[in-house]
Simulated scan of single mutants.
Amino acid sequence: MIITEIITEEYRWPRARPITNGLHTYTDVEFALVRVRTDEGIEGIGLGSGGDIWRATIEHLKPLLIGQDPVNVERLWARMWVPKLIGRRGLTTRAISSIDIGLWDIRAKVANLPLYKLLGGYRDSVPTYIAGGYYEDGKGLKELAAEMEENVRLGARAIKIKVGAVPIAEDVERIRVVRDAIGPEVKLLVDANCAYRWYDAVQLARRIERYDIFWFEEPVAPDDYAGHRKLANQTIIPIATGENEYTRYGFRDLIAHEAAAIFNADAKILGGVTEFMKVAALAQANDLDIAPHGSQDIHVHLVAAIPNGLILEYYRENFDPMWGEIYRDTLVLNKDGTVSPPNVAGIGVDPNYDVLKQYRVA
């Protein structure tokens, strides 16, 4: 089998209302794919970030990949990742990630196994939290509480909200309201998206410890390893980070600085499935857990595959107006608040191109 063609596709559609986290506002949903085709008719779907640099990087990499056997993922990763020129960090690494995910989709299809079983098959369903609690126009404490109560009714055993875009006292009140809404048994996670200096993060952490916070995610800038450590040393709340970290080397440095207890590794960012599994093994050797950031569609397999997969991030329909229409089959919560990987060969993502085509932008 050889790779014959690599195609990129990018889509965008508007949200009814913009959503805001600690630092950024999002008016649209962006969705990007890499389609890796082979001479045997097997196509791998890689999930991506899109954009000019992402697209140009994939064009640059095509000559290195076309004509190669897609099953040789380590060989192809090494061909793509040449850190003097491409792939050390940033958008070029994200492009490598997208291709690598597509290669693993092919690999699992060739093996006729769901990806999580090919990678290790540690469990058949994974603990899950619903991500939400964004800042939105017209969304006050009452609306925030209602959102969280709905999450619990859907079966969530854990939920996450955003912090960092308003004064600390206001976020403390938001957290109090959410804890009251979900009760004492549901895990409560908070995510600052790098909004704080370490000393401000300490102020917030100390004031919210009473609300039994499961983790404090991305409290400070990704490269502020010392700030992560200073915060971790002054709070009982576990620190989670890593969604903006790249390759095994970035996570090696997080470990060396004792920066976090939980890694939010993202296969779409750090270097794909190939590199994610190395990060997971590195974390396991240091008794650290992995709780991936972002796309549940790829990460449900990766959390299910490894023994130190802690919990899966899950986005429901209120996050994306196209939820339930992007793919022909959509991951849903089980009654016990877990999510099960698709029991089909590959990743199990089957884009609904008939619906998507009206939103294509590149």
Rank of each mutant, 00 (worst) to 15 (best):
I3H: 10
T4Y: 00
I6A: 06
Y26Q: 11
E30A: 07
V36Q: 02
E40Q: 14
I45W: 05
A56I: 01
H60G: 06
H60E: 09
L61S: 08
P70K: 05
N72A: 15
K84E: 07
L85S: 11
L85I: 09
R88F: 12
R89I: 14
W104K: 11
N112P: 05
L115C: 07
G120P: 11
G121I: 03
R123W: 05
E149H: 00
N151A: 08
I159E: 01
E170P: 05
D171G: 07
V177Y: 09
P184V: 03
D200T: 12
A201K: 03
I213V: 15
F214H: 14
F216R: 06
K230R: 15
A232V: 00
T235S: 14
I236A: 13
T247F: 10
Y249P: 05
D253L: 13
I262Y: 07
T274K: 09
F276Q: 09
M277A: 03
M277R: 13
V279H: 08
Q284T: 00
H293W: 05
Q296E: 15
I306D: 01
I306S: 02
G309K: 11
L312H: 11
N318L: 03
W323M: 02
Y327Q: 05
K335A: 14
K335E: 15
D336Q: 09
A345P: 04
D354H: 07
V361N: 04
